[in-house]
Nucleic acid binder design. Structure first.
Lengths: 117, 117
DNA sequence: CTCCTTGTAAACCTAGTGGTTGAATACGGA
DNA sequence: TCCGTATTCAACCACTAGGTTTACAAGGAG
């Protein structure tokens, strides 16, 4: 599995997106992160593993604590992917617009010629 | 399930990402889309259903054909989500940098005082 | 040293996903 | 009308995902 799939997959879960959102404000330990949710600590630990495998967070050591830190650069990967295809789609519309304009103009010329002759 | 989850989930699959990529170039029918892949037509039809439920594509009717069209605006949803937290993370770093600068300056002043006295 | 806190690992369950095949539907062309 | 093409629906299967519980490891505090 490639990283992009892992990143998209990680962000497909609302709990994980919320964790990411909270980590933008400050690093946090596993129990701190788990507190607001109605699931076990273990479940949150698993979510963090998924985020870690996607490269979205890193876990360091501080005695028994495992402070979790967001690696925001990974967002660039997603941005790059989306931007690329968004740009292509836009260009496609521009080409279509140009084509329609051209046809329109040709049409106008034809009807003008029609009325003129 | 919210749309953002569906969009991220849809893009978590490489085949679906590839379909999206190809649709940025031109609309296509189900069989056209299925051709390059080593899976059944039915499997691709399912992928398209997932993309449709995420709002990433629409399927219209042309006799027996079902031309698939990309709805690129949905990308904005993802962009917005990412941008928001990316910006927050950056601001956090800037605050951290400011704090470090301040500490550094105070330190420098202290050692200057130390050597001066 | 023992206990409490923090976190991971392992085993398990259920529901969902991505794939298959076979049948059903819808439509244009001979 | 009957046939072929394009596509979806339905049933099934193997595997994954997110959750649980129980057990374990690691490190400070008493």
């Amino acid at each position: 599995m490639d990283q992009l799939s892992r990143v998209f997959g990680a962000l497909a879960d609302p709990t994980r997106r919320d964790i990411v959102a909270r980590l933008t404000r400050a690093d946090a330990t596993v129990s701190e992160l788990a507190a607001p949710y109605d699931v076990s600590l273990q479940a949150v630990s698993k979510h963090l593993k998924v985020l870690e495998e996607a490269g979205l967070v890193t876990r360091t050591k501080d005695a028994q604590r495992r402070p979790v830190h967001l690696e925001a650069e990974v967002f660039d990967l997603v941005n790059k992917w989306i931007e690329r295809y968004q740009r292509q789609a836009e260009q496609r519309y521009q080409r279509l617009d140009a084509l329609l304009d051209e046809l329109n103009e040709r049409d106008t010329r034809n009807s003008t010629e029609g009325t003129a002759s």
